[in-house]
Design a binder for these strands. Structure first.
Lengths: 147, 147
DNA sequence: ATTAAAAGTTAGCCGATGCTAAATTGATTT
DNA sequence: AAATCAATTTAGCATCGGCTAACTTTTAAT
């Protein structure tokens, strides 16, 4: 009963990597809307200069990226003004914030320190399926109850 | 004594994202050397056509990527021949295989099914710190002992 | 009100990673 | 041996996400 199990282990390589590439394509967008939402909460508005500083990129790069996000309907902006999330952008930001927190809390529940949990969560959050997120959440919850 | 804790929670955004971008830059390289090593084990050699099929990209893309890997010292190849790992490539492949297995086993230990564990591991493996890997490994081990 | 500083924008560049289409080489079949 | 078929390579293109340098606009100070 061990041999082939439920799922053929070979076949689906290509699909795995296709989904991986899709995830990558969304990462910058997700990081930006998440950060813009944070900045609006923390500083009252999202300025390009703050995004540049937080991401560690140049203002020109931020400008570039914001244009893509605008094209894709996640943010709105007017020249020399601060940046706003559209409804779609806000929805995405909310989803990302939740997901980020689930991953972060899970890593903390595993015993990792805040610095490492924060850094790893930033990388991991874009690559967890809904199923894995559920398991993470349940684990964190149960580990809290078990004290 | 609680306020600032050991690590200021704000400041280091930029460094986090810089490290994230570094990790991204390594992902394709790591996936390729890992896959080349797998192919050599499974099929006796690594052909471009197999890489193309497994990654779900065109042969032209594989060719491109192999040239970069060659430039960076991870593989060697001669025209119309199969692809070999250099020592550096083999070392990296071994490291990646270990890491991949740790992440995969951890997800399985958490109760996820093989298909999802495999897919998520592929995304997560490039973004786990050494500390997190240690915790994953310890968790998997202890969960095996606890049956 | 002018000037200086800060913020934002534009133009032009580069590398990574993908593609298609066409040419080439290698392997197989007849 | 020739012809075919599969694999590989080349050329040319696109997008993303970075950069620098130069310029413009806005904001703040004097």
């Amino acid at each position: 009963m061990a041999g082939g199990a439920a799922l053929p282990p070979k076949e689906n390589h290509a699909e795995t990597f296709a989904r991986l590439r899709d995830a990558h394509a969304r990462e910058v967008t997700e990081d930006y809307v998440e950060m813009i939402a944070d900045l609006i909460v923390e500083e009252g508005e999202a300025r390009a200069v703050s995004l540049a500083e937080r991401f560690g990129v140049t203002p020109a790069t931020v400008n570039n990226t914001i244009k893509r996000l605008e094209r894709d309907g996640f943010v709105s902006s007017r020249p020399y003004r601060s940046i706003f999330l559209t409804d779609a952008g806000q929805t995405l930001a909310d989803k990302c914030r939740d997901r980020h927190k689930i991953v972060y809390d899970f890593l903390i529940a595993l015993g990792l320190d805040a610095q490492i949990a924060e850094f790893d969560a930033e990388g991991i959050e874009h690559h967890v399926s809904a199923e894995t997120l559920d398991v993470f959440r349940a684990f964190t919850k149960s580990s809290k109850g078990e004290i």
